[in-house]
Simulated assay, not measured.
Amino acid sequence: MAERLAHYVTLTPSEEEALGQLEQQERSFRRGATVRGENDLGRELFIVQKGWLYSCVLLSNGSRQIMRFHFPGDVVGVTSLAFGRSIDSITAVTDAVLCPFDKDRLATVFEEHPRLSALIFSISLAERASLADRLASVGRTSARARVASLLCELLARLRVTGGADLLEFHVPLTQEEIGDATGLTAVHVNRMMRSLVDDGLIARNGSTIRILDEARLTAEVNFINRYAQLDTSWLPGAR
């Protein structure tokens, strides 16, 4: 988590120590395991140390809508801060290691380190804006644009810790999982992926994606990197 936040500001030793204290415990989950179900009680939040996960809501017809994918450095279960019960289900995409902590411990970090509090709040707003962009894409754009937009979003988020020059990345998602994030069937996802490959926008090697023409890809879907636009000029001073 400290590595992710350090992308935006230079952390002080005391800030790094405070964040490190949230990752003192580890809990392992196998691929497909449910970390927490929808409407479950729980005061815990989780920092992702290894692996990928997703948050989803289950619909009455048995289908699911994946709202967000989670990578190392992400805080999962943030809605526990506002509600007594989970509003979504958290599932491991791959084998994963999470660091659980009670939300009271985060309250202590916020009290003692207001700059971290403001930065985490800003990142949460960027995540909300990114989710709104994807929902607009799902509701108003073509199938190809939905898949391309999701790839752009994943790349933008992975660059926070992987570096601005990152063009090739591992995507351990099934076509069904991509479909549940974009409102498409697995068959349709496969066709759209092939279309992006055929047009020279991306290359695929198993679960590895390489962006070949980023400018054309982002222009096609009018992608906005919300994480690159984060304004940190207003943050309070570090303690």
Rank of each mutant, 00 (worst) to 15 (best):
S130K: 00
S55Y: 00
I209A: 06
A129G: 02
T79M: 15
S63Y: 02
G73L: 08
R144D: 13
W234V: 11
T10C: 08
L184D: 04
V197H: 07
A203D: 13
L5F: 08
I202D: 04
R226F: 07
K50Y: 13
L155M: 07
T12R: 02
H7Y: 14
R68F: 11
W234H: 14
L119C: 02
L212I: 08
R226G: 00
S63D: 09
L5K: 04
D231E: 08
L154W: 14
L45I: 09
R30F: 04
N222H: 10
W52P: 02
F71V: 01
A126M: 05
L150Q: 11
T185S: 15
I120F: 11
L98Q: 03
L41K: 13
L58V: 13
L167P: 00
G32H: 08
T161N: 10
I90E: 06
D165K: 12
A143F: 08
V9M: 04
I47W: 05
T218K: 15
R210F: 01
L217K: 05
I120Q: 03
R146E: 05
D180F: 09
R36T: 15
V35M: 01
R239P: 15
T108G: 06
V57T: 10
T185W: 00
R30K: 14
V9N: 01
L166F: 06
S63T: 14
I47C: 00
A143L: 03
S89Q: 09
D88W: 06
L119P: 04
T182I: 08
C99K: 05
A148L: 00
E111T: 12
E26K: 07
F223G: 03
A215H: 09
A203T: 11
S130V: 01
F121Q: 12
L58P: 06
G84L: 08
L158Q: 15
M192N: 14
D40H: 12
V138W: 06
Q24Y: 01
L154K: 12
A132V: 13
S117N: 14
A129Q: 13
N39D: 14
L201V: 06
P72S: 03
S130P: 01
A148N: 09
H113V: 02
Q49R: 14
F223R: 08
F121L: 12
G163D: 07
L19N: 06
G62Q: 03
L167F: 08
S195E: 07
G179H: 12
N190H: 14
Q24S: 11
V160S: 02
V197R: 13
I120T: 10
L119D: 03
S80K: 13
A33D: 15
R27C: 10
G162L: 03
A82I: 11
R134G: 02
V76G: 01
S124Q: 10
H7S: 09
L135T: 07
L158R: 15
C152R: 10
S89K: 07
L106E: 05
R128E: 12
A215C: 07
R140F: 13
E17Y: 03
E176Y: 09
W234K: 13
A107T: 11
R146H: 00
F101V: 06
N222M: 03
W234T: 12
E177G: 01
